[in-house]
Design a protein around this nucleic acid. Sequence first.
RNA 1: GCCCCCAUCGUCCAACGGCUAGGACACCACUCUUUCAAGGUGGAGAUAGGGGUUCGAUUCCCCUUGGGGGUACCA
Length: 526
Amino acid sequence: MRGILSVVHPRWNDPRASARGRAEFGGFPEEEERRLAVRVRFAPSPTGFLHVGGARTALFNWLYARRAGGVFLLRVEDTDRARSRPEHTRAILEGLAWLGLDVDEGPVFQADGVERHRRDALHLLDQGAAYRCFCSAGELAARREEAKRAGAGYGYDGRCGRLDPAVSRARADAGEPFALRVRVPEAAIEWEDMIHGPMSFPAGSIDDFIVLRSDGTPVYNLAVVSDDAEAGITHVIRGDDHLSNTPKQILLYRALGRPLPAFGHVPLILGPDGKRLSKRHGALSVLAYRDDGYLPAGMVNFLALLGWSPGDDREVFDVGGLIGAFSIGRVLKKSAVFDLEKLGWLNGRHIADAPAADLAAAVVEILGRWAREEGRDPAGSHPGLQTSPERLARIIDLVKGRPRTLPALARQVAPFFAVSVRYDEDAVKRFWKRPEETAFHLRRLAERLAGEAVFRDVETLESEVRGLAAELEVGAGRIINPLRVALMGQGVSPGIFEVLEAMGRERVLARLGAAVRFLEARVATA
RNA sequence: GCCCCCAUCGUCCAACGGCUAGGACACCACUCUUUCAAGGUGGAGAUAGGGGUUCGAUUCCCCUUGGGGGUACCA
């Protein structure tokens, strides 16, 4: 598993970025020095896929690193042996890779550091910052239960901390099991959060907490601090849910004599019901969005705008633009609701902005998949799709302004290559209401268009269609809308004259013929 | 129970303590008499409540309410 993602990507190197970064880095005095060697990390546990909340945390870290020309490190927190799975690690790496969040160092695995964690815990004991606690888990649970019944909250009372050191040692030497607990000083703990500003936990609000279990395994808070210190992390940017871990970790940094990083706690992402995002809310994994046909650029743009804004009205950003505009100081304190509609809109903008060449492969893949799902030959059902890339590019450029997802794009491209189209039910109902009349119109149009040797000039095609409408004394829409259904099989398309031109004479005439036959069959059975 | 965090349109974001609280998504209407899932124009829509401080609070302070996180020999 080690080295799954050892690829080192070229560092982002915009000189402008670091020059502007100086002024916009959040405004804390020590910021100036720190930015010289920014090292941030994303530290997911491999207990599930990369969900959108984690992805955004990763993105903010990554943007911060790229903006500062720093290092983005990935650490997999796999110390929960029961729930950690290698395939989850894989999925997380895949998710990051899809989003384009290239990792500079790692992945490193937290489990590899247990010896160091243990050493650090013992060091704490030596320094007197921690003490042996002989209370068993069962006793603790019983006391907690009792306190709860009495209507009070329970915090560890520190009784083992008051043991005579000699007694403590003697009991340990006698083989009595113990955990290691940190002696929390009677003082408020404060720090300047990059996002929340001044933070303060009053003295007495934190109990003596365990750093090393009686089985010798380290507890999370210690492992994190040990790992972050070891890796030289300068800025810890993580979810809001870690806010109340921070004072404990600050204590550990101090006790261990390691330099304190800056902390920034980004708010959580909520579901549409205002509750913390969960499986009930549908797709959680970023890879599910990939599979639904969202672009990484769209997803990244959307995620970045969840809890952050550049401070002006800009909304559509490419990745480089985000790097240039990002500042941790502008990240909001309040949690944001995931809005699928806006993701769709943004993704549509990115599809419209994408070069056709970048979209082509996805279109080919999707149309091929659809063909296979229907038991057809992928190559045979869309001739030319793969063999004429210039034509495909031209078609994509023609249609890419409307769709919001890749499948929607493929659906617009399909009629230009398909041997035949299937008629969308709603479109038929709406635009082919009068089969007899429509069949007649389309037949007349086919005759007229057959007179054009080649479909080259959009204006000529337009005047043919409008000419027919005038001749038949009907509004142009009476011809155009049914024509759209005949050609596209759907009620949506680019401007119809562009469609005629792009589709070409032969295919247009064939499709008109098919539509006429379809409509006449309807008339006959009606 | 205790500790911490948070609070501007339905949603995402703006607003040195100072113009009629602005933009985007979604919604509605109109428009492009060529569709809409595209574009354009317009509309409706918010400072949670109550106290202060101030000439003046979205902005600063306090309380209430609501939401979230923590309070583990989970991460």
